[in-house]
Design a binder for these strands. Structure first.
Lengths: 179, 179
DNA sequence: CTATATTAACTTCCATGGAAGCTAGTACCC
DNA sequence: GGGTACTAGCTTCCATGGAAGTTAATATAG
């Protein structure tokens, strides 16, 4: 799942430069590495989820409920938006969690269409333990970077995301000057 | 699919800090953002793949064959390793590509067990065009970062990946001094 | 040479997620 | 208050990928 010897991305770029010298494949150095690193980190995180019998999707749902605060409930559509999946996928995640006794479903009083998904006591205990383990795991992974590296990376990621959200493909403007 | 107003990751951290003040959730600032940015970029790239009637997996296979150079062929197991999926997934990708007339399968002469997957002429034309479009797309996305930002990001991603591959969870050592 | 182990690809089965349509409840308007 | 539009969740169907087992070919030990 991770990169093989040395640096796979560099090897891929070298092949392209031989085969298609007309193309500038330099963006792969960043985008390809970002892609692979994200996949690698996800695999590392998944190990912890599975230790608690959870898939990534189920962990995300339990976490979203937990951080909502007492009484630890949210509507399915809200959960879908939070965890960036469709409502169809959310229905099935909730099915699994309900079957495992970690959440319950109920109708809302105000609106007969509305549903509420809530953590059970077992669900709250599980996610509290699992999330603490998850954080220890993230600390371990992030600990491979020095403090200034962490800050620099956070800044770069945040800025890039903002620019993606902001403009519809416009290029960087006045960025070089502000450090 | 992307982050909602302002900065979702910061909002998530704020919720955790209210609910679990005993935990240090700072790693999410980097890992969470990396995760979301990667997902966002992948979605952007997928648009181009789909314009050519390809899924991400199929694009990857055609690209791996193309950059192998003439005669544009590789063994299924080799392709599976290159694109980081299991051989079972690769079998099905090749099935789809073969059905679409973009690749052919043949037995190897030396080893009766071995197979070779090769680009057809139609496959080579398609991936040449699709990959050029893909690179234009990556240039557009990366163009949101200034040159120095690109270099800094590439360095950080490469270093982190190397340290993940290298040690089995050891912490950073002697890194603070060489920035 | 025969038996055993290994290897590569394929097959089968299952879990997950997306897209589109369905159902039930609500809001609005005349 | 009856008709229309909307909304939220659910259901159905399909595509994808992983895990484990199967098949066929090759290598190796005795």
């Amino acid at each position: 799942m991770a990169s093989a010897p040395a640096d796979r991305v560099a090897a891929i770029q070298a092949e392209w430069r031989r085969e298609r010298p007309d193309l500038d494949v330099s963006p792969q150095a960043v985008i390809g590495r970002l892609h692979r690193l994200a996949a690698r980190l996800t695999a590392e995180l998944r190990v912890v989820y599975e230790r608690f019998g959870l898939g990534e999707g189920e962990f995300d749902v339990l976490a979203a409920l937990r951080r909502a605060g007492a009484p630890f409930e949210r509507a399915p559509g809200e959960l879908a938006a939070h965890t960036m999946v469709t409502t169809g996928a959310m229905t099935k995640r909730i099915d699994r969690l309900e079957r495992a006794g970690l959440v319950t479903r109920r109708r809302t009083a105000e609106d007969g269409r509305g549903r509420m998904v809530a953590l059970t006591e077992a669900g709250r205990r599980l996610i509290d333990e699992a999330f603490a383990a998850h954080m220890r795991n993230e600390h371990r992974l992030l600990g491979l970077l020095a403090g200034e590296e962490q800050e620099a990376l956070e800044r770069l990621l945040t800025d890039w995301q903002e620019r993606l959200d902001g403009g519809t493909g416009h290029r960087v403007e006045g960025v070089e000057g502000n450090g």
